[in-house]
Simulated scan of single mutants.
Amino acid sequence: MPPPLALQPSGGDRVRSDQWHLRYLNVQSAHQLTQGNSVTVAVPDTGVYPHPDLHMNLLTGIDIIAGGSGNGQRDRNSHGTGMAGLIAAHGQGNATGALGIAPKAKILPLYDTPAGGDGHPDSLAQSIEYAINNGADIISISNVGSTSPRLNQAVRTALASNIVVVAAAGNRPEDNRVGYPASEEGVIAVGGVDRLGQRASVSVTGPEIDVVAPAVDIFSTSIDGKYRRGTGTSNATAIVAGAVALIRSKYPYLPASEVVHRLTATAIDKGPPGRDDEYGHGVIDLVAALTADVPPLGFGSATASAPAPTAGTTTAVAEPAGDGNGGATTRGLVTLGVIVAAGGAWTFIARRRRRGDDPPPRISR
Rank of each mutant, 00 (worst) to 15 (best):
G186Y: 13
N152G: 13
A215E: 01
N133M: 10
D217K: 15
E174Q: 15
S140I: 02
D210C: 12
Y251S: 03
A241Q: 00
R228T: 14
P214Y: 03
A238I: 04
N133K: 13
S183I: 15
P181Q: 06
I209S: 04
V193S: 01
V244W: 00
P207R: 10
G179R: 05
S249F: 07
S249P: 05
T147F: 11
P173T: 14
A213W: 04
V190M: 08
A154M: 07
P181I: 07
V216R: 01
T233M: 09
R228K: 08
A215G: 08
S220Q: 02
D175V: 12
G230C: 10
I239A: 05
L196F: 08
L159I: 14
R156C: 11
V211P: 04
A243K: 01
S146K: 06
S201Q: 12
A200K: 01
I247C: 03
V193F: 01
P207H: 03
S146T: 14
D217S: 15
L159K: 05
F219Q: 10
G186K: 08
G179H: 08
Q153K: 15
P214G: 07
S203M: 09
S249K: 05
N133R: 11
P207L: 07
T233K: 08
Q198H: 13
G145D: 09
S203D: 10
L151N: 01
T237V: 07
V190S: 08
S222V: 04
V187Y: 04
D175C: 11
P214D: 03
G135W: 01
D210T: 11
V244R: 00
S148V: 04
S249Q: 07
R195K: 11
G197K: 00
A215W: 00
V216F: 02
A243C: 12
V212A: 04
R156M: 13
T231C: 05
V187D: 02
A167T: 10
V166I: 09
I218T: 13
